[in-house]
Design a protein around this nucleic acid. Structure first.
Lengths: 350, 350
DNA sequence: TTGTAAGCGTTATCAC
DNA sequence: GTGATAACGCTTACAA
């Protein structure tokens, strides 16, 4: 007989993974009793419970979440879908959501839609197939119709954050887009700028669309007009921001100031200016919606509208946890406040 | 009768989630046949297959991954454990791994160890309980003993990346730490620096420990000595880097140059210098292991050792996929090359 | 080619 | 208090 017990012995634990039945057998009770003891359900004799616990410890028993999920029809897993995990904003939101979800006993399954509708649909399908208990999604801009086609069949609660699907889901957490952009435009106007351009993000997303609309509105409010070509529609990437800036600089009458709809876009603008020998903020002022954590270490330090990205994740997760636990709660829309952080890129003294 | 069919009819699909049995019933075949048709296994009559497919489509059937997993004992899910998802490096690595894993049909379940051993152990336990098929982990410094206590019971393949557990797992992907640090120290020496300090990261992690050792070795090689207090042991955070720098600057004879073990640490150094009125690179030169994607937009632009963080994730994922599919392959240690990127923070012309 | 039956590892509903 | 027994929704021998 080798060091390990004979594998044929009916009472010997298999090399891999003791099961509840094994524990029950060692403890000399039935599987149901073992289950109750382990989960603290029902009234058990103290001695029985102790025996089961001891057996479980001896066998290093780890209950299979898979089996449990199949039986209980709940996975304690939530799906998290974002356009780009590598973006500091989504990464921070993810981290915030994580913390809240874990605190409530949930695990997160992550999917990156790669900023495409197809990617997002595939992600949702996969997650639903996994029978996640809830969904946290920053949509790339699914139509309500498409969303319902994909997720309508299940009643899995879904909370949107950052970018929403109109009237869909159990709730949403958005940033204060309009006030944020207004702060930016007004500040630029105070500096005397009139030729203000915008690097807008994807208009398929509510975040992108709202910011662009807010920009137009704020310009109007300040008695300014948006010149032809001053609205650059970009993707949410550094490269796209760079290209957009190049186009702006190539205009016959280039802007004297730029509002970037996101940090990536601002970074692209910075890079383009550096490459083109454009001095910030003197030749061109730059302000940004979203204050990345290294915003004040850039050159020039970035004037931006800031907020706590992790809080966006936490708030969304909290909403989701509530609807996963309650079932039918009214739709709730949370909005995270923003504030203007003045630094040098707008022309303010360093 | 309402718009929806009566729910008591035995052949009517339930409101929520058609099951394989439902599909089989509608198609007029047995569950096993339906299963085969859907999975393309075995020889089926064309007509049968078509009937099943049609029924599945009609019912919008989505197989339960949970049930499938229980039966097949494989989840097609891999666990991903990092000290901090919000760090650009890990976020990028995650994204790289994601892409590779998804391509191979795997989903990822993410856990953040929060840079603590307890967090990491809890994460591993959870993941193992979920019966993930594989593990991708950047350890915070578990001892081989502890790791085996936690994961030894299962033979789930585990690939470490960035920071490793000695002789554990199925493989590893590390950065070229020693050459990288040497590049940095030598470059500083070429600039004439002799009083060089280091902001070292967690020494519990191989990445942190190796970089510190490499620093000492490189100093020796260049005939330089590390003055007392020139080694600051930090955590991998911006704040810690800032504090470490403050301590360095408070020394009776402060260094003229600093090697930061990570981007976070360098950012902290930058912040400390800015706050303390220390001019970079004139008063203090700074170089960094890890070139964040915004490295050249900082002030001053950061001289750093760069590499492709997503590639680290991809390589680790590739290794993992192989060992999940093959089972017993020899241990493989991949190392990702690095290169020196000269910018202004070291004293090079901008 | 297709169906029957067993089983994956739990939990829940009953009896006893 | 505790133990059978039946699901949960799927796959896979083994029969037919």
């Amino acid at each position: 007989m080798s060091l390990r017990e004979a594998r044929s012995g009916s009472s010997s634990p298999r090399k891999r993974g003791a099961t509840l039945a094994d524990v029950a057998e060692v403890a000399g009770v039935s599987a149901s009793t073992a289950s109750r003891a382990l989960n603290g359900r029902g009234e058990l004799a103290e001695a029985t419970r102790a025996a089961v616990l001891q057996a479980a410890a001896a066998l290093d028993f780890r209950p299979s979440a898979v089996a449990r999920s199949l039986r209980t029809r709940t996975t304690f897993t939530v799906g998290f879908v974002v356009p780009d995990v590598a973006s500091p904003f989504y990464a921070a939101a993810l981290k915030g959501a994580q913390a809240t979800l874990e605190g409530a006993g949930y695990r997160v399954m992550l999917m990156d839609s790669e900023q495409t509708e197809a990617g997002e649909v595939a992600a949702l399908r996969t997650l639903l197939d996994q029978r996640v208990d809830g969904l946290l999604v920053a949509t790339t801009g699914l139509s309500p119709k498409r969303f319902h086609e994909v997720a309508g069949g299940s009643d899995t609660p879904c909370v949107f954050f950052d970018s929403l699907v109109w009237r869909a889901g159990a709730g949403s957490v958005a940033l204060d887009n309009e006030p944020g952009i207004r702060l930016l435009v007004e500040h630029l106007a105070e500096h005397g700028h009139e030729r203000i351009a915008i690097l807008a993000g994807s208009l398929a997303e509510t975040s992108g669309a709202e910011r662009l609309r807010a920009f137009r509105k704020a310009m109007r409010r300040n008695g300014l007009r948006v010149a032809a070509g001053y609205e650059r529609h970009c993707r949410w990437t550094v490269d796209s921001g760079r290209a957009g800036t190049d186009e702006l600089l190539d205009l016959a009458t280039p802007p004297t100031a730029v509002v970037a709809s996101s940090a990536e876009l601002a970074l692209g603008c910075l890079a383009a200016c550096r490459a083109g020998g454009v001095a910030l903020p003197d030749d061109l002022a730059l302000v940004c919606f979203d204050d990345p954590y290294f915003g004040d270490l850039l050159e020039p330090p970035l004037t931006a509208v800031g907020y706590d990205p992790a809080e966006v994740g936490r708030a969304a997760a909290a909403l989701l946890v509530e609807s996963m636990q309650d079932g039918d709660r009214p739709y709730r829309a949370v909005t995270v406040p923003v504030e203007l952080v003045r630094r040098r890129s707008c022309g303010c003294p360093g």
